[in-house]
Amino acid sequence: MMGVLKSLGVTAKHAIKGDTFTVEYPDESPHISPRFRGSHKFSLSRCIWCRMCEEVCPNGTIDIKTNQQREGEEYNLNLGQCIYCRLCEEVCPVDAIILTQHFELNAGTKAELEYTKEDLMDVPWYKGMDPLEAREPDRGAWIGTDEEEEVWEPAGAD
C-alpha cells in the first residue's frame, strides 16, 4: 500500500503546486514558433508566374492559369486541401508565396476555402502586415539577402 500512498503524494504535490500547462486559448495565444506554417500569403507584384509552386505541390492545392504570353491570369489556392508542407515557399525563387503564422481558418463550406488571387490579397490578416516580421531574427535565412528586404512590399498595402 505504500506505493499507492506515494502515488497519492505525487498527485497531491501537483495539485498543491497548481501549475497548469493548458492555455486559455482565445485570450492567451499559444506558443507559435517563428517558423510556423500557417495560411498563405501571396504577392501578386512579386510573382513571376514560373509555376514552380504548382509543380512541387504534392496534392494539387495550387492551380495557376496563364494566357498565351505566359502572363498570369489566375492563382487559385485551396486552403482546405493544403497540407501545409511549405514546399511552395521553399521552391519559390522570388518569395512570392509565403506561409504566415496565421492558423485560425474557418469556413462554412469547402468552397469558401478556395482562394483566388484577389482573395489572397484581400484576406484581412495580410493587410498592412509584413508576414515575415514574425520570422525575425532568422529572417535572412528565409528570404535570402538583406537587399531583398527593401524590395518587399506587403501586398494589399497599395
Binding site: R35, Y84, R86, P137
Partner: peptide
C-alpha cells in the same frame, strides 16, 4: 516546432540533409 515549424507534420528532413538550420 521551433526547429521545424510544426508540431506534428514536420516535413523537416530533405534528401541530403535537413530543410533549415537550427532556429536563431
Amino acid at each position: 516546432e521551433d526547429l521545424s515549424g510544426q508540431r506534428l507534420m514536420f516535413n523537416y528532413l530533405r534528401l541530403g540533409g535537413v530543410s533549415y538550420d537550427l532556429p536563431e
